[in-house]
């Protein structure tokens, strides 16, 4: 079926059907590999070994700034569940939630890191992280999860440019990717921060 015949066939369809055809095309186009796709991967064709598991990071956004955490520290990613608020706790501790039978503390990372809240996002997610040693799991609320990206340790740059405040102590380094800076968070430092630890001891 060449293009002209197809166009004729589409013209003869009712308007709702035409719309459906257009929609299908639109989806097909967006899934096609484009010339500018740097990864060059095709659908359904796994290419193992390209990225080391150790170097994989989950990238997310807090008020337009990209952050990354190592995949090893991430247990799972969920939509924001129903949270039970607790009394006499700081603002950044949103409360606790039921995670498949386990009680999980939920922390608003934006508040904890004293980042201004962005406009209410539809794509808000909860990232469940754990420290490497202590097996402590906590849910972080983030604005948006970008995806899993591989980060080579050589890409990491020093954070000496950043001010040496509390925020700086949580950051392992900064990488540049696609004209964008991504701050790589050290989960262990965050979880062992005085705020969280104080809270943990108290609880």
């Amino acid at each position: 079926m060449n293009g002209t015949e197809r166009d004729h066939a589409i013209d003869s369809l009712p308007s709702a059907a035409k719309f459906a055809v257009n929609l299908a095309e639109l989806i097909a186009q967006s899934t096609k590999p484009t010339a500018g796709d740097t990864r060059g991967s095709a659908v359904g064709v796994p290419q193992p070994g390209t990225v080391n598991n150790r170097n994989k990071h989950v990238v997310f956004v807090l008020n337009a700034t990209h952050y990354a955490v190592p995949l090893a520290n991430v247990l799972e990613i969920q939509r924001v569940p129903q949270i039970t608020a607790l009394p006499h706790v700081p603002d950044w501790l949103r409360g606790v939630t039921n995670m498949r039978g386990d009680v999980l503390s939920v922390v608003d990372l934006r508040m904890l890191l004293k980042i201004e809240l962005a406009e209410c996002s539809q794509d808000e997610r909860m990232v469940v992280v754990k420290s490497t040693k202590e097996e402590l799991a906590i849910g972080w609320i983030v604005d948006r999860v970008v995806g899993i990206r591989g980060i080579e340790p050589s890409e990491l740059k020093s954070t000496s440019l950043l001010p040496a405040d509390s925020m700086a102590s949580f950051i392992a380094g900064i990488i540049q990717r696609d004209d964008r800076l991504i701050a790589v968070l050290d989960v262990n430092r965050v979880l062992s921060s005085p705020e969280l630890r104080q809270f943990e001891l108290a609880s």
């Binding site: 995949l71 991430v74 247990l75 990613i77 969920q78 997610r125 999860v145 899993i148």
Partner: peptide
Amino acid sequence: SILALNASI
């Protein structure tokens, strides 16, 4: 997308 992420994890 979420499922895929968790699958990756």
